[in-house]
Design a binder for these strands. Structure first.
Length: 276
DNA sequence: TTAAATTCCTGTAAGC
DNA sequence: TGCTTACAGGAATTTA
């Protein structure tokens, strides 16, 4: 599933090909439309035509495409979303829900078999006020994000550490894969209360999380499920994962079979010996 | 206020 | 082989 490293890879790949391009036309397929959440689909289509792409960036797991006139196109890939740059003549894959025609004969296509993703169009204020774009926590890979800030955010949280890491209003961009990977790297049990961590432990987690994300970005993300980059290619981080998806297999550190728990409705893999 | 449970959705894999 | 069932999960929504 696309988390911070996967979204970062897509954004970096698309940037040189999208900035300066004009969205000539937008076509929404499959109605009632499953992924356009704001504004109404017809208004979405009508108001995006003719706008130039000025900037493309990322915030948490959201792709932000700033358009001239102050509005932005926001894309969240959910579980199985793909945002790909394809020649206009190419065959249209099933589950393609939106097609944006660009002024150079290319198309930006949004495909999402499980339909958990969403598309938004509006100004920042509009999207925040409509409740369609959440108030996210800090970016974990931001140089200004220090472990003291993380400690402060854990301070009054009695929920399990894993659940707090998945909470996008606490930290933006971490999902099930990198939560498990970060906790393993930091040698912390996923089921202990976040507020029980010492400053020292939080510092270890802070460093582990940044390391896990940085390595994953370098490897162009984890293609454990439907994840593909902007060209339809897989990443390689799935081959480097320490615990995610390895329940029952030996811990690379101590050899003991990895355990699995259900926390916050997510399967959580960890080593009972190395993570205490 | 916080946290846990439920819901959405479809492809995949396991079980019979 | 072919059918049924369970499972995967991000985040909004509902319930406690």
């Amino acid at each position: 599933m696309p988390e911070l490293p996967e979204v970062e890879t897509i954004v970096a790949d698309l940037r040189p090909h999208l900035v300066g391009r004009i969205i000539v036309r937008c076509e929404l397929r499959s109605l009632p439309h499953p992924v356009v959440r704001y504004p109404q689909p017809q208004q979405f289509v009508d108001s995006i035509a003719g706008l130039r792409i000025d900037v493309i960036g990322r915030r948490g797991k959201f792709i932000l495409i700033a358009l001239d006139g102050g509005r932005m196109l926001v894309v969240h890939l959910g579980m199985s979303g793909q945002l790909r740059l394809i020649d206009a003549g190419a065959e249209i894959a099933n589950h393609t829900h939106a097609i944006f025609d660009l002024d150079n004969g290319k198309q930006l296509r949004y495909r999402d078999p499980r339909r958990f993703g969403r598309l938004l169009l509006g100004t920042e204020t509009e999207l925040l006020d409509s409740g369609t774009f959440p108030r996210l926590g800090p970016e974990p890979i931001d140089p200004g994000f220090d472990s003291e800030e993380l400690y402060r955010r854990f301070r009054n949280r009695r929920a399990p550490l894993k659940a707090v890491l998945l909470d996008q209003t606490t930290i933006a961009g971490v999902g099930n894969i990198y939560a498990d990977e970060s906790l393993h790297r930091a040698r912390l049990r996923p089921d202990r209360a976040a507020r029980s961590l010492s400053r020292k432990s939080v510092r270890r987690l802070h460093d582990a999380m940044r390391e896990s994300l940085a390595v994953a970005i370098k490897n162009r993300g984890s293609s454990v499920d439907a994840y593909r980059d902007a060209w339809g290619e897989v990443g390689s981080q799935q081959e480097e994962l320490l615990v995610y998806g390895r329940a029952g297999e030996p811990c690379f550190n101590c050899g003991r079979p990895l355990s699995v728990l259900r926390i916050a409705g997510r399967s959580t893999v960890f080593c009972r010996r190395c993570q205490r």
